[in-house]
Design a protein around this nucleic acid. Structure first.
Lengths: 240, 240
DNA sequence: GAGTGGTCTAGACCACCCC
DNA sequence: GGGTGGTCTAGACCACTCC
């Protein structure tokens, strides 16, 4: 199970191994994990290395510890596809739907003051203004507007914009998306929005404004999305 | 700064010390932290202990690391009051509003099948059914319905229910709230809801269904909330 | 080559839980 | 008292970055 000659860190090998046991059901919720010292002895690794593996799984919610008693498998399965920060494309795939896109606007504009401020760039710096209708199994699901600095997003084409922007940012630009803040509100569809989403004017919609960051805390892009309330629910997991 | 005779763990002392420097602005965003080995030498502690302190701060978003370069202070300040799992009471206080409550329903009922299932208790087990109008500065903000097992919530009174339920759960019951899942949707107010919230029928509202858990993954309670869209936005931070 | 974080070791003592 | 996780040490070698 543990290969000392692998370039993969030992703690990570153990972490994946234990996670696998939980996901395959070989370790049942509520069950006690073997003691840390046992893992250390069995795989001929240090206890600190075992702890590093287990720490990760505790942070991710797979396990929990009780002082003096042991380490246990959490009752609740982690809802993998729905937690964390995902793109529309990733999320729809996770739900078993086929994601699609219809570009309705693609332009480079000088950044208006409020957007420039949010992206921490100078006013009137060129930014991409991209508006897309997002489809799930071919049906309009949301209206999404992205703002991203043209300086950061070099050579962004209509073609790319109509596919997965996150794949482009992480794959091509080599910019790692680390976190995001989101503001979610409930609203009703305007006439234009209703037309694009193929719903009635005044129908309930969810307005989501997202700001994504690199690990240093530098903003990457702003996204304003309008989701049809009849087809979309937003799910998250919170830690106290 | 570091007291070896204190019962407070060394890594935690260092963690709080560094966090303090960041919050006081003595360590500016983007600034490089002293190397781990320097902290170890300076405070006569092991480098692993230093790493434990820094790991925590990296997880919390205060710092980030770059292999071969160093550890840096994140650009973005963590929005303390809005992240994580908070109660209505805590959230309104954080926003500078005075939270209030108006009890409209308080009863012990046999758990209907879907609710029993969510709480992982047997059908018809007695549960509290509590409905409250939640106020901010005296104005209706949300309509909240809580379901909690009567077996778990012993001696829950109308008096307590009308104050902070989270304070009661953690303070009196000694049950530690660890995490929650939330489903957020956009909807429009029904006639009854509109009347209680003092808004027009058909006005946009946000429907939030929360399920809270203990660290073992055992469900604690279910909450269904209906928020006025004109007065409430939901803010969260996501990690990739 | 010097400095940094990433990984890892082989021990140690403590506080807590259960018998 | 024996087992558990929590903390801590004093080293080590590696990969990476920068000069």
């Amino acid at each position: 199970m543990i290969n000392k000659n692998s370039p993969v860190p030992l703690y990570y090998q153990l972490e994946e191994y234990i996670k696998g046991l939980i996901e395959k059901g070989e370790l049942q919720p509520g069950e006690t994990l073997p003691p840390e010292r046992e893992y250390a002895q069995k795989y001929k690794i240090s206890r600190m290395t075992v702890r590093q593996a287990i720490n990760q799984l505790v942070n991710e919610g797979y396990l929990y510890r009780q002082k003096g008693k042991g380490t246990f498998v959490s009752e609740r399965k982690i809802e993998q596809p729905l937690q964390g920060l995902t793109s529309f494309t990733e999320e729809m795939k996770a739900r078993g739907l086929v994601p699609g896109s219809q570009l309705v606007h693609f332009e480079i504009i000088p950044a208006p003051s409020p957007i420039a401020e949010q992206l921490t760039i100078a006013e009137n710096t060129p930014i991409y203004d991209i508006k897309r209708i997002r489809l799930a199994d071919g049906v309009p699901m949301a209206l999404e507007t992205n703002y991203i600095s043209a300086h950061l997003a070099k050579n962004l084409t209509e073609q790319i914009a109509n596919e997965s922007l996150y794949d482009y940012i992480e794959g091509q630009l080599k910019v790692r998306i680390d976190s995001a803040t989101q503001v979610i509100e409930s609203s009703i569809a305007s006439k234009d929005e209703a037309a694009l989403l193929n719903i009635a004017e005044g129908a309930p919609v969810m307005l989501i404004q997202r700001k994504t960051f690199q690990k240093e805390g530098t903003p990457i892009e702003l996204v304003k999305s309008i989701y049809r309330a009849d087809r979309y629910k937003f799910m998250i997991e919170l830690k106290r």
